[in-house]
Design a binder for these strands. Structure first.
Length: 1023
RNA sequence: GCCCUGGUGGUGGAAUUGGUAGACACGCAGGACUUAAAAUCCUGUAUUCAUUGCGAAUGUGCGGGUUCAAGUCCCGCCCGGGGUACCA
């Protein structure tokens, strides 16, 4: 009986569907284990071969944990809100909900094809009101909270209001936008609008005028992590800086906890580092400089207060409010011109001009707090408005940017640190190097580290500033001028101010009972003519109060990362209408034990979902501070693209069609062309750019082939590569001719269903191979569908694991897939005898004598007739142990090879004993569930192999009484010597030295030393 | 620039705590079966030299070092991948 993967898959699928095998219960006494994949945004392209890498790994691990007796939560859902669906809607008018649904269906069928063991009864999509009700609910919770720096947690805003009413801002240590000072009386005197504005300074979800990343092409605001190199991550459109009212989340309040929490979780070092850098904690102090005129003062933040005597100027950010206030009339025109110029620059221009020094003298001077000297105040766009105080003290001798600035404008460069050797004091910053203060009054002679401590003390004593910790992390922009997202549950109440009778709007939160605020239908997805977000188009979408008065809702929607910030909790209790998840469900499942997903979410999702978890923790809504104990980032499977540049093609008409009904064209490359391919065909990006106008990009199958064939150019003759006709559609430009069938005859090739593209000997071309992220626009996408159709799911699963370590990125290639396929075929054959019947395995004897853990669901018999030999048992238990160890460190590639080794050895012994093969089927089942399920039932089990128990490893079968010692001389291994295990070091040494082989190597040389490491090695040092 | 990663045969990769480098697989070469091909099976396969057999030397990006012993640890470089970028 041959290995027929499609029959096998069908029969296994049928069985699982009947038993609803992946259903997970919350109500169990078993220990829990939570394995989660980052849920995907279902894009139009479907899954490509890169997606399953993580899914397969987590699936194998889940199945393994189940065999080990855990109740495993392994769910999947959909991150359904997002930009692409809306962009598509704008272009086509098709509602994003429809596109999204179609895409989800496609994804789901592909996932099922991969045999992923998700409990689909827990599936949801973030765009479903039953789900986003709770996203809105958490938003409201944030809106109604402030962060108390004293208790280090979020607290209800009512408590803060109560304190304001009692004693104003006295003794309040809150995370806030700016430090405010008012008394209880003042607070009580404020208008409703003023109170609302003040509270926004403290709320964790707040509305404020903020500099945002505005993307005109997308018509929306983007978060910092959605902007790359000054352009939008999605689409690559230019991004500008714009001041506008903006919903934000006060993630900065959690900066310290987000940073410290990293030490408690098992994430890769690079991931933690990326988050640490993004949070960017730096210690230093604030320092005030009085301005000459006396009315104003500048506060700077510095990490190097020890260099305070080296300050020769102060620079303000162009956006700093002080600029307008302190600039004397004599300098006003020039300064304003500069400020406007700087403000109007796009992010990209600003970044591109990083190395260009620009600035303007304000005409104002500050007084040095220690020397009393006058210091000129400048404006410069190298100072960022959003970081620290938007002002820096210029220490040109010890900071490279200040140095460049001073040099450019001819300012003084006083040296205040003695440069130790190896430290280019003008160019490099201080990073743990040592140096002593000079020309610094009371700091003279002190080490940098010590000087920082002393000077901060002095600054604090004189009331000039205080030691401070600054974070690079900014609050997260939370509003998008978009339709396809969660509506923000806020409406705007109009109020008339008592004093001025000015009408203003106050944002008011919906009541919990009014949730969800449902996304209304709209006719067009563009912004309105007045520039309002698309939601302003919604008709009959108003908040009505008790008196029937109508107010408009917030028009912006939540960003893509809102739903994903808490989604992992919903799987625990997905249909709960009263809570985001019940307390019982959360306390059973706890946080994620293993989280698998792409590393590209390092500073986005992975930071936000830690933030939301900590927030929920503060209210006792979840009993843990970190959402994921262990995180593994699967590597990216890259696409390979080939570029054929300046080439003449010869075209052959399609004749046949393949089994799916599609025409399969192919490409032939002549021997001459291949022979002349440069060995190193990977040309740098520079060349690609140079030829950008004249190359044709080819489909990945073609590319893989080029990749493979180049390796073996010597024996290379011809290759045929499938290539979609659409890919060569610009054939006119490529001078493509029909080619005759004679040519095929001559070349001994079959022209059936092939479109040959011929590279004549004299054509000029360059072939370039490029490895990059798979993307539809790059024509380098390979879907798992084709691979599965050809080799089956079990092969696909094992092959993706066999490619290499999970975390490593690698280009996709099917080179080597036959190794895995052959393995499964041979494994299958092990169960059948020469007559192709499933009698190869010995039957069991009726009636059962003893119960063993592996005979769950057995219909007949229990004791195998054939007794396994010690060597067979050794092979089995060696494998059981190895797989278990590899699982612990998620080393799936080595487990696959362990199975191969095991099979090779059993094949050698022609072993077909039930006692060996039955446990092996269980071990292999997480990797190749289909074949194992079918073999399992052929072995006589009625229940699924999924319900089996992982075989118990028995050390006793591996015990050896001899060890084969490698004996080396001066570190070089010369021969092996088999010795008993239980003899002493001295005895080993004696026996080794006495051996014939050793004598041959020693001859008359002097033995200096003999190192014996029991069970490892013997090394003899001669000389 | 800074931070993180990685660099091992023709290829993907293995070597888990410093202890036989190259497991496993692909590819390739030779052989068996076959009219032939495919499939399958067997043998070989790091490099160089030697080859009648035995062998020998070199070898984990480069240069040093520690050690009886280094792919693994230390110092200094080079190259690839990812992140970040006036963060004071």
């Amino acid at each position: 009986m041959d290995y027929n993967f499609s029959d096998i898959e069908n029969s296994a699928r049928e069985k699982w569907a009947k038993e609803d095998i992946y259903k997970v219960s919350n109500d169990t006494s078993l220990p829990k284990y939570y394995v989660l994949d980052m849920f995907p945004y279902p894009s139009g392209a479907g899954l490509h071969v890169g997606h399953p890498l993580g899914y397969i790994a987590s699936d194998i691990f889940s199945r393994f944990k189940r065999l080990k007796g855990f109740n495993v939560l392994h769910p999947m859902g959909w991150d359904a809100f997002g930009l692409p669906a809306e962009q598509y809607a704008i272009q086509t008018g098709q509602h994003p909900a429809i596109t999204t649904k179609n895409n989800i269906d496609r994804y789901k069928s592909q996932m099922n094809m991969l045999g992923l063991s998700y409990d689909w009864s827990r599936e949801y999509k973030t765009s479903d009101p039953a789900f986003y009700k709770w996203t809105q609910w958490i938003f409201l919770k944030l809106f109604k909270s402030w962060y108390n720096n004293k208790t280090k947690k979020a607290e209800p805003i009512e408590d803060l209001i109560a304190q304001f009413e009692k004693s104003g801002t006295k003794d309040i240590h809150a995370a806030c936008g700016e430090e405010l000072n008012f008394s209880a009386e003042e607070w009580k005197g404020y208008s409703e609008k003023e109170k609302s504005d003040i509270l926004f300074n403290y709320r964790l979800a707040y509305l404020s005028e903020a500099w945002v990343n505005w993307c005109p092409a997308l018509g929306t605001v983007l978060a910092n992590d959605e902007v790359k190199d000054g352009v939008s991550e999605r689409g690559g459109y230019p991004v500008e800086r714009k001041l506008m009212p903006q919903w934000s989340l006060r993630i900065t309040a959690y900066a310290e906890r987000l940073l410290n929490g990293l030490d408690t979780i098992e994430w890769s070092e690079s991931m933690k580092e990326a988050q640490r850098n993004w949070i960017g904690r730096s210690e230093g102090c604030s320092l005030e400089f009085k301005i000459e005129s006396g009315r104003y003062k500048v506060t700077v933040f510095t990490t190097r207060p020890d260099t305070v005597f080296g300050v020769s100027f102060i620079t303000l950010a162009p956006e700093n409010e002080l600029v307008g206030k302190i600039t004397p009339d004599s300098h006003k025109a020039k300064v304003e011109e500069y400020v406007n110029l700087a403000k109007n620059k796009t992010e990209r221009e600003r970044q591109a001009e990083v190395k260009k020094v620009s600035g303007e003298f304000t005409g104002a001077y500050a007084i040095h707090p220690f020397t009393g000297k006058e210091i000129p105040i400048w404006v410069g766009d190298y100072v960022l408005a959003g970081y620290g105080t938007g002002a820096v003290m210029g220490v040109p001798a010890h900071d490279s940017r200040d140095h460049a600035f001073a040099k450019h404008f001819g300012l003084d460069i006083p040296i205040v640190i003695e440069a130790p050797e190896g430290w280019d004091i003008l160019k490099e910053s201080y990073d743990g190097k040592t140096g002593k203060c000079i020309n610094s009054d009371f700091l003279n002679g002190l080490e940098v580290k010590e000087a920082i401590r002393v000077v901060i003390e002095e600054i604090e004593n004189r009331g000039l500033g205080k030691g401070k910790v600054n974070f690079r992390l900014r609050d997260a922009a939370f509003g998008r001028q978009r339709y396809w997202g969660e509506p923000i549950p806020i409406y705007y109440k109009t109020v008339v101010s008592r004093q001025s009778s000015v009408v203003s709007e106050i944002p008011v939160a919906l009541e919990e009972s009014e949730l969800p605020l449902i996304l209304p239908p709209i006719d067009k997805f563009q912004p309105t003519e007045t520039g309002d977000p698309p939601l302003a188009r919604a008709t009959d979408w108003k908040y009505k109060d008790k008196d029937g008065k109508e107010y408009h809702y917030e028009y912006t929607t939540m960003p893509g990362w809102a739903g994903s910030s808490w989604y992992y909790l919903r799987y625990m209790d997905p249909n709960n209408a009263n809570e985001f998840a019940s307390k019982d469900a959360i306390s059973y499942w706890q946080n994620i034990d293993l989280y698998i997903g792409g590393a590209e979410h390092a500073t986005g999702h992975l930071l936000y979902f830690r933030f939301w978890t900590k927030f929920l923790f503060d209210y006792g809504l979840v009993p843990f501070e970190e959402p994921a104990k262990k995180l593994v980032n699967q590597g990216m499977i890259q696409g390979v693209s080939a570029f054929i540049i300046r080439v003449n093609f010869v075209w052959y008409q399609l004749k046949n069609i393949d089994m799916t009904g599609a025409k399969i064209p192919a490409v032939y490359i002549s021997k001459e062309v291949v022979d002349s391919l440069p060995n190193n065909e990977i040309v740098s990006n520079e060349i690609i750019k140079l030829f950008h106008s004249s190359f044709l990009k080819l489909n990945p199958k073609f590319t893989n082939k080029i990749h493979e064939e180049n390796i073996q150019l010597r024996s290379y003759a011809y290759t045929n590569i499938h290539i979609p006709v659409s890919m060569v559609s610009d054939k006119d430009e490529l001078n493509i001719d029909m080619y005759s069938e004679d040519w095929f005859a001559k070349e001994k090739l079959s022209p059936t269903n092939q479109v040959p593209i011929f590279f004549p000997q004299n054509s000029k071309y360059i072939c370039v191979r490029e490895v990059e992220k798979m993307s539809k626009s790059k024509y380098n996408v390979v879907t798992p569908d084709d691979v599965i159709a050809q080799y089956g799911t079990d092969t696909m699963r094992m092959y993706e694991m066999f490619l290499g370590p999970l975390e490593m990125s690698k280009p996709w290639s099917t080179q080597g897939i036959s190794g895995v396929y052959n393995f499964l075929r041979k494994f299958w054959k092990l169960f059948f005898d020469e007559n192709d019947a499933f009698v190869g395995v010995d039957p069991r004897v009726d009636p059962p004598t003893t119960a063993t853990p592996i005979d769950t669901g057995l219909t007949h018999g229990s004791t195998p007739t054939a007794t396994p030999t010690p060597i067979e048992l050794k092979i089995l238990h060696k494998t059981i142990k190895k797989i278990e160890e590899d699982m612990e460190r998620l080393s799936f590639n080595t487990s696959v090879s362990a199975f191969m080794i095991c099979l090779n050895e059993l094949q050698e012994l022609k072993c077909n004993k039930r006692a060996i093969l039955e446990p092996l089927v269980i071990c292999l089942s997480p990797f190749a569930p289909f074949i194992c399920e079918v073999l399992w039932s052929k072995l006589g089990h009625t229940s699924s192999v999924i319900k089996a128990s992982y075989p118990k490893f028995e050390e006793k079968y591996l015990v050896e009484n001899t060890f084969s010692y490698p004996v080396s001389f001066n570190g070089k291994t010369r021969f092996m010597l088999e010795l008993p295990l239980n003899i002493s070091k001295e005895e080993i040494e004696k026996q080794v030295l006495a051996s014939e082989d050793a004598q041959k190597w020693i001859k008359d040389q002097n033995i200096k030393k003999v190192i014996v490491v029991p069970n490892k090695i013997v090394n003899i040092v001669l000389g």
